[in-house]
Design a protein around this nucleic acid. Structure first.
Lengths: 213, 213
DNA sequence: GAGTTACTAGTCAAGTTTGACTACAGAGTC
DNA sequence: GACTCTGTAGTCAAACTTGACTAGTAACTC
């Protein structure tokens, strides 16, 4: 599973009603084009696809207010909300390597309540540790026959990444337990989207630091 | 860029001549189906595509020796070798987040010589550190206006991953400098492929430890 | 005041990835 | 002896992703 569906559902949901360009702009604001496959084509495709599947409801809208082709506005359906929450929980939980999915989930974690997020993240840490143990067991059995040569570095790399991921997750758990951030049902939520007309400080033209390659 | 082309080119090259199933089996032996998109469909597609592009030469072969559809055997061309080495160097160098690309490159690094690999990896560490500095600079400017809320955790996660990656790469550099593994031009290479008839200890049927999810 | 650039909004074709499926052969088994 | 399971080898349609492109308006610039 790629992160695109979660990102798009979450963005539409935060707006209540959004057209493609708005979603696209939000994802850029979050830096998602840097760490996920949130390219325009993918976004518009996901919107259409999810509308077809009944996760979003498409309103055909008159020609855009500012030029360009006519807009379609999308609204999340009940089915879409269920899918969104399910994707979100799964993404926080999965020790599933792809970092883009976790990143997306971090951006939306405050849509769940604090206790649930803590539970999911702690489970995440446990699963990572189990996975680690299983892998080392499997590739270095008691009889010491493991002669992987440099191929072993691949495993080594994944183990190291898993350890780093577990450690970081543990840190996040502690920050959240310590009262950081505002979760569902805790009053005024943090506003993570751009409202119509607000300028985007991280717009593409601005050049992201990563572009120095 | 996904890792599939590098993986397939490298596998064919090690065999001298290989058919799709052989490549597929090698990649499974390396665990590539766990950490990359090396599914059968992708592998066969890549073989055909690269044959069309002149990176591989396709020999049409008589019906398979053991049943099933007729095989096609592939051999790497000069152009393919050039592409392979170029992909390999690029993958070792790129601080480009995708871990599957780096994993694939690790499996093939011994096709380059020791000094070159050391140079590439050290450059990798430097680039990671520069990237880190640029990101922190950009998102926490001197005027302290950065009010990212929980969105900041996304950046935090990437920074943490980059740090872990740099640290691990540094460790690898030291192991290689210390004489580990056998690189190009250093005598009998480590055999990382399965020869015809050799059984695969990590075959799918065996169940990988990751499957305990 | 004509040309160039930038921004808004989205489409499209080409390429890639996925997961399920086909087809054959040998080995066990009831 | 019919049935099921496993292994070999690969195809295919559907879905997804990519990057380049269209098209209109505003704003700047010389």
């Amino acid at each position: 599973m790629s992160a695109i569906r979660l990102l798009v559902l979450g963005a539409v949901r935060q707006h209540g009603r959004a057209h493609g360009y708005q979603v696209r702009n939000d994802l850029e604001y979050w830096g998602a084009h840097e760490w996920s496959n949130a390219k325009p084509g993918s976004i518009y495709h996901a919107l259409k696809q999810m509308a077809k599947q009944g996760l979003l409801h498409a309103h055909e809208i008159a020609p855009s207010t500012v030029g360009g082709p006519p807009r379609t506005e999308y609204e999340i359906t009940e089915k879409g909300t269920a899918e969104y929450l399910s994707l979100l929980r799964e993404s926080l939980l999965a020790h599933d390597q792809k970092p883009d999915v976790l990143s997306a989930a971090l951006g939306f974690m405050v849509d769940l309540d604090r206790e649930e997020v803590l539970g999911l993240l702690q489970q995440r840490v446990r699963t990572l540790k189990q996975w680690r143990a299983a892998v080392t067991d499997h590739y270095t059995p008691e009889d010491g026959t493991a002669e992987l040569g440099h191929i072993g570095e691949i495993m080594n790399f994944w183990l190291h990444s898993a350890d780093a991921g577990a450690e970081w997750t543990q840190g996040l758990v502690e920050r959240i337990r310590g009262g950081a951030y505002t979760f569902a049902g805790e009053g005024e939520p943090f506003v993570g989207v751009l409202t119509e007309g607000q300028e985007n400080p991280y717009a593409t033209g601005q050049r992201h630091p990563e572009d120095t390659r």
